[in-house]
Computed example of a mutant assay.
Amino acid sequence: MKRMVTGCLVLIMLSACSNSYNDPLLVDGTRNAGFDYDIVQCRNLAEGHTKDALKRPAITGAILGGAINAIGSGDDWAEDALIGVAAGGGVGALEGLDERDKTRRSILLRCMQGRGHRVIG
């Protein structure tokens, strides 16, 4: 059981390694004047809006993982519940990271477009 949980966590962590928020922006044409200044300002805006985005998914995952493992367990329910809490919290945090990354990228793109830059992705 423990090996399976560990293996699943490793696979999930590897699949969550994409970091589209930090990928360079695609611009249709040349960059406008002030692009570098605006991108710093827009990144600060995006990061400010999503600074607490990991708490809820990690806590939810920990609660669900602990409950599911404790319910489906036999004699050693406390140890299984702790494994479920750790695994569920980890999975929830990774899902939160992915969602935060997507939200930040979306805010960054809209902010740059709102400042007159021809950003397409």
Rank of each mutant, 00 (worst) to 15 (best):
G84Y: 03
T6D: 13
V40D: 15
R118F: 04
I107M: 04
R105Y: 05
E47G: 02
D98T: 14
A46E: 06
G121M: 11
L14F: 07
V91I: 15
A67E: 03
G34D: 02
G48F: 03
C17M: 15
L109H: 11
E95M: 15
N44L: 05
S18A: 14
T103G: 04
F35C: 03
N32L: 08
R115P: 04
G88Y: 03
D98W: 11
I39Q: 00
A78F: 12
D80M: 10
A33D: 12
D52V: 08
G29F: 00
M112E: 05
G7N: 07
N22I: 02
T30P: 08
I120H: 08
Q41C: 06
L94R: 09
R31D: 04
V5S: 12
S18G: 13
D28E: 13
C42L: 03
I107H: 06
P57Y: 02
G114D: 11
E95H: 13
K55S: 12
A58H: 08
Y37N: 13
E95L: 15
G72A: 07
L108W: 06
W77F: 12
A46V: 05
E79C: 00
R3P: 00
L94P: 09
T6H: 09
D98M: 14
G34A: 05
L97A: 15
D80R: 07
L26N: 11
G121T: 09
L108D: 10
C111L: 04
A16I: 01
C42F: 05
R100K: 11
R110L: 02
I120K: 11
D75F: 07
D28T: 02
M13Y: 10
D36F: 07
C8K: 09
I120C: 08
E95Y: 14
F35R: 01
R100E: 10
D38F: 05
F35S: 00
L25W: 01
G96F: 10
G92D: 03
C17D: 13
L108E: 13
R105D: 06
R56F: 11
R115D: 06
L109C: 10
G29D: 00
L11C: 10
R56Q: 13
R118M: 08
G74M: 03
S73I: 05
L54K: 03
A86Y: 09
M112W: 02
M4D: 11
I63S: 06
R118L: 08
N32D: 13
G65E: 02
I63Q: 03
E99A: 13
I12W: 09
G72C: 06
N32H: 09
A86P: 06
L54A: 01
D52N: 14
R110T: 07
R3I: 06
T6R: 11
R100G: 03
L11Y: 02
G96E: 10
E95I: 15
G48H: 04
C17T: 15
I12F: 13
L45S: 05
T103S: 10
I39Y: 00
L97C: 13
K51G: 02
A33C: 01
G89F: 06
L54H: 03
R100Y: 00
